[in-house]
Amino acid sequence: MLHNMSQTVGAWLRHPTVSKMFSFGVIGIGNAAIDFGIFSIAYQLLSVPLIPANVIAWLVAVSISYVMNTMITFRAESGRVLRRRDYLTFVASGTVGMVANTVTLLLLSYIMPVYAAKIGAIFTAFIVNFAMSHFVVFRTPPRA
């Protein structure tokens, strides 16, 4: 029973989209920590207002995310080459995630502590960012 379940999980994790989602998630955890840390420093220590603190944290995290995802998650699609155009496309598509993150942060901050709201906002942005990266930034070109 346990062996069969292990094989099923292994097969599932080998699925290309699931594998990419897992890699994107692991990188995202690191970037979420960076985002949260920079947000905390800006908001708490430097008294930067909520939205600018969130945007500053996002800009740093999205830049690191682009490099990591180019080199690891979407290495086949990117050839592990950092390109200005791809970075700008990644940032532009990530803007959708940042908007989702900021809206979630603002809405949740009315009903829970700001740092709990920030965690919820990061989770929301993960879903949006993976979809944008997978289907827009690093999509496989259609076969001719």
Rank of each mutant, 00 (worst) to 15 (best):
L2R: 14
L2H: 11
H3S: 15
S6G: 12
V9L: 14
W12F: 15
L13W: 02
L13A: 15
R14L: 06
P16Y: 13
S19F: 03
M21T: 14
M21A: 15
F22L: 14
S23F: 02
F24E: 08
F24V: 15
V26C: 08
V26H: 03
G28R: 10
I29E: 02
I29N: 06
N31E: 04
G37L: 01
I38M: 09
I38L: 11
I41H: 00
A42F: 02
Q44H: 13
Q44K: 15
S47V: 11
V48E: 01
V48G: 00
P49W: 00
P49G: 04
P49Y: 01
I51N: 02
P52W: 13
A53P: 12
N54G: 08
N54E: 06
V55A: 02
V55K: 01
V55G: 00
I56C: 03
W58F: 15
V60N: 01
A61D: 03
I64L: 11
Y66N: 03
V67P: 01
M68L: 14
N69K: 08
N69I: 04
M71W: 11
M71F: 09
I72Y: 10
I72C: 05
R75V: 02
A76T: 12
E77N: 12
S78K: 13
G79E: 08
R80T: 06
V81Q: 06
R84C: 13
R85S: 13
D86V: 07
L88N: 05
L88M: 12
T89F: 12
F90M: 06
F90N: 04
V91F: 14
A92I: 09
S93H: 06
G94T: 09
T95A: 11
T95G: 11
T95Q: 08
T95C: 13
M98W: 06
M98T: 08
M98H: 05
M98F: 07
N101S: 12
T102N: 09
V103A: 10
L105Q: 03
L105W: 00
L106S: 02
L107M: 09
L107W: 06
L108K: 07
L108G: 05
L108Q: 05
L108V: 09
S109V: 08
I111G: 03
I111L: 11
M112L: 11
M112N: 07
P113A: 09
P113F: 09
V114G: 05
Y115P: 03
Y115R: 03
Y115S: 01
I119C: 07
G120P: 11
G120R: 12
G120Q: 07
A121F: 01
F123K: 03
F123H: 02
F123V: 15
F123M: 14
F126W: 12
F126N: 04
F126T: 10
I127F: 13
I127M: 12
V128R: 13
N129I: 10
F130D: 07
A131Q: 09
A131C: 05
H134R: 14
V137W: 05
V137Y: 10
V137I: 12
F138L: 02
R139G: 08
T140Y: 14
P142K: 07
R143V: 11
A144T: 07
